[in-house]
């Protein structure tokens, strides 16, 4: 990113600043940035220019150099203006809906938030800084902007983003105005799929692996269709045919799909993490092949199903372990 940001203690211990901030304001989204939430301090460059201005002031005063003084004061007044403008850039900005869609461990989390600029002025050069990464954005007047910050990869499970700040050093880079946000909404990180996972368990005993259900035609009634030459007589739906004044024959579903039975306890792998990784890889593979699967974790049993929703449920269950 373009600029280094202030270091932050990595510990989660609530320090003085944290406690003070929490007492001062609510930090959870949705937020509207306002006077009490916005902090302003000079940037490093701001301090440098301040020192330079101090030197100019003393020199000009000493020699009663009026043009030198005027130059100094012009810069000082510009600095004051730039402070106000930095504040204005944040003041009244609405922040909403902080969330991240689930990813696998090892992939960066894309945490996103909506920034809404209700005012009639553009807001440019804003930055969302999570402490680990930062991303810049602009919000033109009267629009809503999606802001995404990439958080580094995390371990599987539920996480909350750390305290972030939304900041700006507009227009001259002299002052940094910022506001803290600490979203309480959690996001999920799925387990990382094992890279060298064995193929989907086929065959073998019927607990782990394939549940072959080569269904006979005719177990599951499926639907009716017009009778065609060649349909066996016992398939004719007499009652329905009478209702509709035409011969209808019953269609039967043929169970072709073969369910895969995935059991966490019996998956190969030295420890739990490794087994979770392998099962995760299996789930992804099964979903890709559109084969229904059952996941068994201890006493919990999910499926059979091959839908995306099922996949999410399974991955979530694995992540929460």
């Amino acid at each position: 990113m373009a600029q280094a940001t202030g270091s932050r203690s990595g510990s989660r211990r609530p320090n003085l600043l944290d406690r003070w901030l929490r007492r001062r304001t609510r930090l959870d989204l949705p937020l509207t940035l306002a006077y009490r939430r916005i902090f302003i301090l000079p940037t490093r460059f701001g301090w440098m220019l301040g020192v330079l201005m101090g030197a100019m002031l003393i020199g000009s005063l000493n020699f009663n150099n009026n043009l030198g003084l005027l130059t100094t004061f012009l810069i000082a007044a510009t600095a004051v203006n730039s402070m106000l403008l930095a504040f204005r850039n944040l003041d009244g900005l609405h922040l909403r809906h902080g969330k991240a869609r689930p990813v696998h461990a090892g992939e960066p989390v894309e945490w996103r938030m909506a920034a809404i600029n209700e005012s009639a002025r553009d807001r440019t050069g804003l930055q969302l800084d999570s402490g680990e990464a930062a991303s810049g954005f602009d919000v033109p007047a009267g629009t809503t902007q999606e802001v995404t910050v990439r958080l580094p990869d995390r371990h599987r499970g539920w996480h909350r983003p750390r305290r972030m700040r939304i900041q700006t050093t507009q227009p001259l880079g002299l002052f940094r105005a910022w506001s803290w946000i600490e979203p309480t909404s959690r996001f999920l990180v799925w387990p990382r799929p094992a890279s060298g996972a064995p193929p989907l368990p086929e065959g073998g005993d019927d607990r782990q692996g394939l549940r072959s259900q080569a269904l006979e035609e005719g177990e599951d009634f499926h639907s009716l269709r017009e009778w065609r030459e060649g349909d066996p007589l016992h398939r004719i739906a007499w009652k329905a045919s009478q209702r509709h004044q035409t011969l209808l024959s019953r269609q039967f579903r043929r169970e072709r799909s073969r369910e895969v039975f995935l059991c966490l306890e019996r998956a190969p792998g030295r420890d739990l993490e490794e087994r979770i990784g392998i099962v995760t890889a299996w789930i992804l593979r099964a979903e890709q092949q559109k084969r229904p699967w059952i996941l068994e974790i201890g006493a919990q049993r999910l499926g059979p199903d091959a839908s995306e929703r099922h996949k999410h449920e399974c991955l979530r269950a694995l992540a929460e372990l």
Binding site: S223, A240, Q245, L248
Partner: peptide, 11 residues
């Protein structure tokens, strides 16, 4: 599942 359009619309 064994319903036909005519079951709804009429015949």
């Amino acid at each position: 599942s064994d319903m036909l359009p005519a079951d709804i619309l009429g015949v």
